[in-house]
Amino acid sequence: SELMNSSKLIRMLEEDGWRLVRVTGSAHHFKHPKKPGLVTVPHPKKDLPIGTVKSIQKSAGL
């Protein structure tokens, strides 16, 4: 199965306009000026399962 580095996923979010608002432990929480909701990324993780990545991307509207 495909894995993604959390840094790469965070870069994709930031390029889309998401900004880090809070860190709780290894959970990084992002908000967007125009899009609704809060997106949480486990970080640092070298090997996020593709299912997790897809669900984060979906929440972020990517």
Rank of each mutant, 00 (worst) to 15 (best):
Ile10Asp: 01
Ile10Ser: 02
Ser26Arg: 10
Asp47Ala: 12
Leu3Ala: 12
Phe30Lys: 01
Glu2Asn: 09
Ile50Asp: 15
Pro33Ser: 08
Lys35Thr: 03
Gln57Leu: 15
Ile50Thr: 13
Glu15Leu: 09
His32Glu: 00
Ser1Gly: 13
Pro42Tyr: 05
Leu13Phe: 01
Glu14Gln: 09
Lys58Arg: 14
Lys35Trp: 03
Gly25Met: 12
Lys54Asp: 10
Asp16Phe: 05
Thr40Arg: 13
Trp18Glu: 00
Pro44Glu: 04
Asp47Glu: 12
Pro42Gln: 07
Pro44Ala: 05
Ile10Tyr: 02
Pro36Ala: 09
Lys46Arg: 06
Val39Gln: 03
Ala27Lys: 10
Lys54Gln: 11
Thr24Tyr: 08
Gly37Arg: 06
Ala27Thr: 11
Leu9Met: 10
His29Tyr: 09
Ser55Leu: 12
Trp18Asp: 00
Glu15Asn: 09
Ser1Ala: 12
Ser59Asn: 11
Asn5Met: 11
Lys34Leu: 12
Asp47Gly: 08
Gly25Trp: 08
Gly17Ala: 03
Thr52His: 07
Val39Tyr: 01
Leu9Gly: 01
Ile50Phe: 10
Lys46Thr: 13
Arg22Leu: 15
Pro36Tyr: 07
Ser1Cys: 14
Thr24Gly: 09
Phe30Thr: 00
Val21Arg: 04
Ile50Gln: 10
Asp47Val: 12
Gly61Asn: 06
Met12Ser: 06
His29Cys: 10
Leu62Phe: 03
Leu13Arg: 00
Lys8Ser: 14
Ser55Tyr: 07
Ser55Asn: 11
Gly51Phe: 09
His32Pro: 01
Thr40Glu: 12
Pro33Ala: 09
Ser6His: 03
Leu20Thr: 07
Thr24Arg: 10
Gly37Val: 03
Asp47Lys: 12
Leu9Lys: 01
Gly51Asn: 15
Glu14Gly: 05
Gly37Ile: 03
Ile10His: 02
Pro33Arg: 09
Leu38Gly: 06
Pro36Asp: 07
Ala60Met: 04
Ala27His: 15
Thr24Leu: 08
Gly17Asn: 05
Trp18Arg: 00
Leu3Met: 11
Leu13Gln: 00
Lys35Ile: 03
Val41Pro: 00
Val21His: 10
Lys8Glu: 15
Arg11Asp: 13
Ser59Glu: 11
Val53Asn: 02
Ser59Pro: 01
Leu3Glu: 12
Asp47Leu: 09
Gly17Met: 03
Ile50Trp: 14
His43Val: 02
Lys8Arg: 13
Glu2Tyr: 06
Ile56Phe: 01
Thr40Pro: 03
Glu14Tyr: 13
Leu62Thr: 04
Gly17Pro: 00
Ser6Ile: 03
Lys58Trp: 05
Glu15Lys: 12
Ala27Gly: 08
Val41Asp: 00
Val21Phe: 10
Gly61Pro: 01
Leu62Ser: 04
Leu13Ile: 08
Pro44His: 04
Leu13Asn: 00
Gln57Asn: 05
Lys35Arg: 05
Ser1Arg: 06
Leu48Cys: 02
Lys31Cys: 11
